[in-house]
């Protein structure tokens, strides 16, 4: 079960069981609703911005372990970052889950997000990992709903 363990690393299972920043936000600066039509997973992402800094981010979601853990890890990764940094992180993360870890600088800058590199071996699950990031980008770019398709 090597591939399975690489996909569901302990940190992924733990974030699935206890997702961080899993709550509705009362007065968000922006919000976006993400939908994965392939599996029906949904997420609502809330963000508070101070100028161009993400001061708070939270989500509510119904989805698989990968999508929930990825959303949880994403909130930790972007909180306190600038909008540009958050967008750049999405780019690196997308590369990670489609091409795998490369052991370089990008991996290092992704921090805990690298635990999702195992998704690469499960092509049908890549969109589970990127759903929350699509919602993040949707919120930043003023799209109320986004889809992974």
């Amino acid at each position: 079960m090597d591939e399975l363990e690489e996909l569901y690393q302990e940190i992924v299972l733990e974030h699935n069981r206890k997702p961080r920043n899993f709550r509705k936000m009362d007065d968000p600066t922006c919000t976006s609703h993400g939908f994965n039509p392939f599996c029906g997973d949904t997420i609502t992402l809330y963000m508070t911005l101070d100028e161009d800094v993400v001061t708070d981010v939270s989500f509510e979601a119904a989805g698989c372990a990968i999508s929930k853990a990825s959303a949880s890890l994403m909130t930790q990764a972007v909180k306190g970052r600038t909008v540009d940094e958050a967008q750049a992180t999405f780019g690196k993360f997308h590369n990670l889950v489609t091409n795998g870890a490369n052991g370089g600088e990008d991996d290092e800058s992704l921090g805990d997000l690298v635990v999702l590199a195992g998704v690469r071996s499960f092509p049908t699950r890549i969109k589970c990992a990127t759903l929350s990031w699509h919602a993040l980008r949707g919120a930043l770019e003023g799209e109320e709903t986004v889809s992974t398709e």
């Binding site: 569901y8 997973d41 989805g63 698989c64 372990a65 990968i66 499960f122 699950r125 589970c128």
Partner: peptide, 8 residues
């Protein structure tokens, strides 16, 4: 356990 995790 979400159905997709179970399926995998």
């Amino acid at each position: 356990v979400h159905p997709h995790d179970l399926g995998t």
